[in-house]
Amino acid sequence: MKTEILKIAAAHLKPFLLILSLVVLYRGHNEPGGGFIAGLLAGMAYVIYAGAFGVGKAKQLRLAKPMFFMGLGIGIALFSGMIGLMNGAESIFTGVWTTLTFGTYSLKLGTPLLFDLGVYLTVAGMLVKIIFTVMEEDV
């Protein structure tokens, strides 16, 4: 199953999928996309990589720390809910928005986006963790 074609494809797909996932994550608020989809995409990058090179190698990748990202994701999501509270809102998960402007480009940032980042990390972490664990059992 570990063919050269798949290896080359996987190696190149991985960064592409990761960047794509970030784009999908950011644009999710206004266009199709969002944390769940982006998280699945990012996880997919690692799944394909593991399929091509084997789990052992995939686990050595720099970002392959699924448990850490799962925890981080939930932490970020929870923290994003607290920001509103700190700003004096009455209930948890009240949105706070700011706009960063770089010349003509403006970047709209808000706690919902932060929350979506948490979702993204958790979903990706979960996916990678599950698939890796099951794959390890295979070997």
Binding site: F36, L40, L127, I130, T133, V134, E137
Partner: peptide, 20 residues
């Protein structure tokens, strides 16, 4: 449904490993 799908994946994965 969107959340149900992702959760459904979690459940499917868990139950598959469980039967294993």
């Amino acid at each position: 449904i969107l959340t149900a799908l992702v959760i459904g994946f979690g459940v499917a994965a868990f139950s598959m490993v469980l039967i294993y």
